[in-house]
Write a protein that binds this DNA or RNA. Structure first.
Length: 103
DNA sequence: GTGTTGACCACAG
DNA sequence: GCTGTGGCCAACA
């Protein structure tokens, strides 16, 4: 078991619940773990996440519906999402509010 | 303890 | 559409 901060651990746990074909945002995740406004910290945690292949980090996107960045490349992130049924156009998610997963 | 950085957010111009 | 600014929080030097 890898040692991680409580904050990061909560982030990973939440993200793990996101079903394929759905996405969530950094703000919602932060809010769900009891740290509203910590969107930046969430991204920071995911960037160095020790569970890189284990956690579907690619299902977490920005609040405005853009895909955002990804440790393995934003390109890969969009591709993975589309493979799961998420439609993306020019780096933005289509039907964003429709597939948005609110914890 | 302070300053910098970062997968961010919101607003103003 | 874009840039700049201020704000948020956590991790690290």
């Amino acid at each position: 078991m890898i040692k991680v901060s409580d904050f990061s651990a909560k982030v990973f746990k939440r993200i793990r619940r996101i079903p394929a074909g759905h996405v969530s945002t950094y703000v919602l995740v932060a809010r769900a773990i009891g740290h509203p406004g910590a969107a930046r910290a969430v991204g920071n945690a995911l960037n160095k996440n020790p569970y890189a292949p284990k956690i579907p980090c690619h299902r977490v996107v920005k609040s405005n519906g853009e895909v955002g960045d990804y440790a393995f490349g934003a390109k890969k992130k969009s591709k993975l999402l589309q493979e799961e049924g998420v439609k993306i156009t020019r780096g933005k998610i289509v039907n964003f509010e429709n597939i948005l997963y609110k914890f």
